[in-house]
Deep mutational scan, measured.
Amino acid sequence: LQLFIKTLTGKTSTVEMEPSDTIENLKAKIQDKEGIPPDQQRLIFAGKQLEDGRTLSDYNIQKESTLHLVL
């Protein structure tokens, strides 16, 4: 599924993920695209901070969801 990652600067990146992927996997993919180390990334979806060990489906993240990346 395609996700949009929006940064505080207003920049939006697109990443392709599976519902079974963990937040950790997602942060690794963001690191590949943006060069931001996972330990500096905080991802927010629906007002919640996402935890590394959980999966996208745990948070009911659907295709074309927008996640907010806070550093």
Rank of each mutant, 00 (worst) to 15 (best):
K11S: 09
Q49A: 11
D52P: 07
Q2Y: 11
I44R: 04
E18K: 13
S13C: 12
D52C: 04
L56C: 02
I36V: 08
S20I: 05
Q62V: 14
I36Q: 03
R54E: 04
H68F: 15
K27A: 02
I5L: 05
T9Y: 13
D52H: 05
L71D: 06
P19F: 09
K27P: 00
H68N: 07
R54M: 13
M17D: 00
K33I: 15
R42Y: 12
Q2D: 04
P19W: 10
I61C: 01
S65D: 14
E16S: 12
Q31F: 15
L69F: 03
F45P: 00
E18R: 14
S13F: 15
F4V: 08
Q49D: 13
K33P: 02
R54D: 05
S65P: 03
Y59Q: 03
T66N: 04
Q41G: 03
D21G: 09
S20Y: 13
L50V: 04
V15Q: 03
T9P: 05
Q62E: 11
G35H: 07
E34L: 15
S20F: 12
L69I: 06
G53C: 06
L8V: 12
V15G: 01
I61S: 02
T9L: 10
K63F: 10
G47E: 04
F4N: 08
I61H: 02
L69K: 00
T14N: 06
N60C: 05
P19S: 11
K27H: 02
L67M: 05
D52V: 06
E64R: 09
N60M: 08
T7A: 07
G47C: 05
Q49M: 13
Q2G: 04
P37V: 05
P38A: 15
T22H: 04
D21E: 07
S57K: 12
A46M: 14
H68E: 11
Y59I: 02
R42G: 05
G47Y: 04
D52R: 03
G53T: 09
I36Y: 14
V15T: 02
N25V: 12
F4L: 08
R54S: 08
L67H: 01
L71I: 13
P38G: 08
N25G: 09
L69M: 07
D21Q: 07
L67C: 01
Q62D: 08
T7F: 15
L8K: 11
K11E: 10
S13W: 15
E24P: 02
D39W: 13
Q49V: 15
E18G: 08
Q2C: 08
S65V: 07
I44Y: 15
K29D: 02
T9A: 12
E16N: 11
A28R: 14
A28N: 10
I44S: 09
R42H: 13
Q49L: 15
K27E: 01
N60D: 08
E18F: 14
K6F: 08
K6A: 07
I44V: 09
Q41R: 01
S20L: 09
V15A: 03
Q40S: 09
I44W: 15
G47H: 05
S57N: 10
H68T: 14
L56V: 04
Q41T: 06
K29W: 11
P37T: 05
T9S: 13
L71Y: 10
L26F: 03
V15W: 08
L8W: 15
L3N: 01
I5G: 00
L50D: 01
T9D: 14
Q40I: 11
R42E: 08
I36A: 04
I5D: 02
T22M: 06
V15H: 05
S20T: 12
E16H: 13
N25P: 00
S65L: 04
I36D: 02
L67T: 01
E24C: 06
L26Y: 00
D52L: 06
A28P: 00
N25Q: 14
G10A: 03
Q41Y: 14
L69G: 00
